[in-house]
């Protein structure tokens, strides 16, 4: 919660400075992609200790508003990417819609049995063959999300021959006449194991958002299970709701 309304002349200086910097980012004085004044310069301007400046800055780095680049300075991060929970489209569609260039790098593409866990989630027996795909999605060269996708193999029989760098899962399903019409999504916070954290460029202990979606076709058959791990400092999810009468 941003308690800027509660921060006043009696608040600790680092909190006052944090809100001051936040304000300058919001009103455009500090522009996305540009460096803010150095810690030393801020300390001098406001006559406060460098340690206080550091804690103000590191809080904003933690929130994803600023980014420290070794040897270069502290930069303002642009608007967070927004993913619409409402669209049935995949990652690519969402990013393209916002005019950002997205790339996908496949880490794993393999056939495996569903096992108890994925069998239960997809409503198929444990020995059902699934395609398992694990990929990193990047925007502007920076990893944004890690996706784990499980697809019943009989629904997309030739998946191993398809270049996933060219076609999205949604397009491939389309080739086979599979149209997901309903998705059950849940959003949680979890932590990645060290190897996955490295792929996503986050510290292992840091929280990431985990969006799980089970998609169903018109006949109510589960056609896909996707778990998307997203960097909390690069993305927010948004949803629009309306009262039904």
């Amino acid at each position: 919660m941003r308690h800027e309304d509660a921060i006043g002349p009696n608040s600790p200086l680092y909190l006052q400075l944090r809100e001051l910097i936040r304000g300058k980012i919001e009103n455009g004085e500090y522009l996305p992609g540009t460096a803010i004044p150095s810690v030393g310069a801020l300390a001098e301007t406001y006559g406060i200790h460098r340690l206080s400046v550091r804690s103000a800055v590191s809080a904003l780095i933690g929130e994803g508003l600023l980014k420290a680049v070794q040897g270069k300075g502290i930069f303002v991060v642009g608007d967070k990417l927004e993913q619409e929970l409402e669209s049935v489209g995949g990652f690519r569609q969402n990013m393209v819609a916002q005019g950002k260039k997205a790339e996908t790098r496949v880490l794993v593409k393999t056939l495996r049995p569903a096992g108890a866990a994925y069998g239960a989630l997809l409503g198929v027996p444990a020995d059902t063959a699934l395609y398992f795909i694990k990929q990193v999605c990047s925007v502007g060269g920076e990893p944004v999300s890690l996706e784990e996708i499980y697809l019943p193999a009989e629904l997309v029989p030739n998946l191993d021959k398809v270049d996933l760098g060219v076609f999205s899962i949604l397009e491939i399903q389309d080739f086979y006449g599979i149209i997901p019409v309903r998705g059950e999504q849940s959003l949680e916070i979890t932590q990645l194991n060290p190897a996955d954290a490295r792929q996503l460029g986050v510290e292992p202990g840091r929280g990431v958002l985990r969006l799980q979606c089970v998609s169903y076709d018109g006949g109510g058959r589960a056609v896909e299970l996707t778990r998307t791990y997203t960097r909390g400092d690069r993305c927010t999810f948004s949803v629009h709701f309306q009262r039904e009468y």
Binding site: E63, L187, L209, C235, S238, R243
Partner: peptide, 19 residues
Amino acid sequence: LVPEQGDEKVGITYATAGE
């Protein structure tokens, strides 16, 4: 006042001392 429609954004934050 009828809460008829709205929007919601979700992200991650880190607990402050007070929170």
